[in-house]
């Protein structure tokens, strides 16, 4: 049984089409594995090898990876939700009702998107504090820390813009409260708020603006920054191995 499966898998991997996509082949050697990473546009952001110590759970709690995981879930569910959503008043709210009652698994999609969004905000914070307490922000990783702080803000903005989209009481007043804070900025506060909402109150213009921010501008920016963030992990010497290498050796 297992042999048959293995043979089948081999056949697929030896296939000409497969080989045209994944050139590295099936080898078990480190060369093959290295090529797998190097020749993949996504994986090549990472170095071919990693310190074994940094893979232990206690090193990172995998918080960065998990944050990225929520981001992936959010992108997928978000795209599916966009198929059912009109950023207009009051259709946006009617779409929520349709998602809940008529769209197949619509309520599941919305739940997953919502809870993942909360999870992502939480994980971003957790990731940041974990990095700080480990001291992993120290040179040469200082710039990656800054990118991380920007990504934190980006995550908050993504979540905040998404908060308005259901156009229910919760959304409307949460965003009203938030946008009123913005107007407290001296001198340019009112202007900022106007720019943010596309008007003087949270209305259809604000909904459209938040929609575009939420679905286009912010995700795009986040993807770019995440790519840089990952790239810099490699360029700054991999995942931070811990405060004292000597301690690691002692084991």
């Amino acid at each position: 049984m297992a042999n048959t499966l293995d043979r089948l898998a081999d056949q697929v991997r030896e296939n000409r089409i497969w080989r045209s996509i994944f050139r590295s082949g099936t080898g078990e050697s480190n060369l093959h594995r290295a090529l797998t990473v190097q020749q993949n546009v996504f994986l090549h952001l990472f170095s071919v090898k990693a310190r074994k110590r940094t893979l232990e759970f206690r090193a990172t709690w995998y918080l960065g990876a998990l944050t990225f995981g929520t981001f992936l879930i959010l992108v997928i569910t978000g795209i599916l939700l966009m198929l059912y959503y009109h950023p207009s008043v009051p259709q946006a709210y009617a779409d929520m009702k349709d998602l809940q009652f008529v769209v197949s698994s619509g309520v599941f999609l919305r739940n997953l998107h919502r809870w993942s969004a909360h999870a992502m905000v939480f994980l971003v914070f957790a990731h940041m504090f974990k990095v700080f307490y480990r001291g992993a922000y120290r040179p040469p990783r200082e710039f990656n820390w800054v990118i991380g702080v920007v990504l934190l803000l980006m995550t908050l903005l993504l979540s905040y813009t998404g908060y308005l989209l259901p156009w229910d009481q919760l959304a409307f007043w949460a965003v009203t409260v938030g946008s009123n804070i913005a107007s407290a900025v001296p001198v340019i506060g009112a202007k900022m708020r106007f720019l943010m909402l596309g008007g003087t109150a949270v209305n259809a213009n604000a909904l459209l603006r938040f929609y575009v921010l939420h679905c286009v501008i912010l995700p795009f920016a986040a993807v770019v920054l995440i790519a840089i963030h990952f790239w810099r992990i490699r360029k700054d010497g991999g995942i931070y191995p811990g405060e004292s290498p000597a301690e690691g050796d002692a084991k």
């Binding site: 290295a34 990473v37 090898k49 990693a50 110590r53």
Partner: peptide
């Protein structure tokens, strides 16, 4: 100073 033990990114990481 000693070279640490390392693993391949693919498949381990």
């Amino acid at each position: 100073v000693k070279d640490e033990e390392r693993v391949m990114t693919y498949p381990e990481v």
